[in-house]
Design a protein around this nucleic acid. Sequence first.
DNA 1: GCCTTATGTCAACAGGATTGACGCAAGGTG
DNA 2: CACCTTGCGTCAATCCTGTTGACATAAGGC
Lengths: 234, 234
Amino acid sequence: MPTRAPQERRRRRPTASGVVLSKELITETALRLIGEHGPEALSVRRLGAALGCDPSALYRYFRNTDDLLLAIADRIIGDTMVGFVAGPDWVASLRDMAMRVRAGYLAHPRAAAMASFRVTRRENEFRAVETGVGLLLSAGFPPADAVRLYLAFIDTVLSHAALDAACHALPREQREADERAWTEAYQSVDPESHPALSEVRGELHAMAESSFEPAVDLLLDALAAKASALRPRT
Amino acid sequence: MPTRAPQERRRRRPTASGVVLSKELITETALRLIGEHGPEALSVRRLGAALGCDPSALYRYFRNTDDLLLAIADRIIGDTMVGFVAGPDWVASLRDMAMRVRAGYLAHPRAAAMASFRVTRRENEFRAVETGVGLLLSAGFPPADAVRLYLAFIDTVLSHAALDAACHALPREQREADERAWTEAYQSVDPESHPALSEVRGELHAMAESSFEPAVDLLLDALAAKASALRPRT
DNA sequence: GCCTTATGTCAACAGGATTGACGCAAGGTG
DNA sequence: CACCTTGCGTCAATCCTGTTGACATAAGGC
């Protein structure tokens, strides 16, 4: 008879409220907590209460809160990349990756704001790096360039996604006030002291929109140009 | 006799240690504290200790710690763009702007990390938009494009700077652990399941570095290419 | 059925932000 | 010069936070 894997062998004693804890249940609950009540709602005490266990029980599963945070971040990465398959067109595939990451962050705006700049060192991040670097290698970049360019790409994607997520996490009134600023406050600039702003006055409303797609497309343009410089004729 | 401005009229009683408090002294001390002892050294208690006053005295000057943080952020923005003048080369000028923003954020990472996603709508932001849009107009872009492209540019700069700042704001152990991950944990990948990672193994240390300059340069490359497509021969 | 040990619980600690009451002294006023 | 208002520094208290060590108990292999 096959012995079960060690991590499945672990005994899971139910808590006082009858729940059986697991890493998965904890990260899920944490994500739900953040989504419902904001990032400041995430504390070991509140998480324990939401799970129906003593706060200190969490330390049997995560070394500390940072460890928990990384697990949450990795779960978001995993969710966003579910069902993704790299196609033959590396630029289109990277673009698909970018749009997925953004969608994943927008689905959990508040968690994204906390975790977007961390290296999770976990399986899902592993796979994302593998995929992205693989695409750049397939484009013909040598390893050193593939790594550097992937980093520039993914950081742009992650940080822009975090920016979008942060905006979505703002209270509605504040977000609308920020948007109105571009179409109202900025309209009455003095042409003398601010000639450029005055000249583009009619277009400033575009500043209220997300720059995610333009920025990613500019970056992909630059990558494509670099790649075709590598192989002048294909 | 001219009456002094209300804010100058305020009485400033010296603290027990003889210091006379002010908004300026408090923000300066907070920045010094962060610079000397790391970002986690900023707490009301420690700030009070550094100033030689009771922690609660700070609440006479700032509504709460968030208010204090915004004051600090505003000071950083001001410092960042001091002395900047746009030159004739629009690409170089945008690059200069980018590097200044980053330097300003990195000098005070924690404050930057917390405030970088907000729209200030104050004079400094005003001037930055004026300058940046003006540079793109001078490059020959029509108003609508100048606005959209400036947005993509500045968001990339701001969000990458925030990303860098956020990494620098991490406690040292966490940051070092994140960096080590690329040279250690990621080294032992299975070549079978992760062929691309395995191929670039020797270059992964680059992932621990900042992608700010590569990303900004890629974006500027793309902008320059777009501009020269506008005016094939100058 | 026993023994090991994983794991949930409890109590405690240090340090965080914030607030309300208190009282000193700074400064305008007469 | 003396008085009175009030700005503001101080103190003490409250309620949070993460984290740890001792303890108890049940799960599961034998």
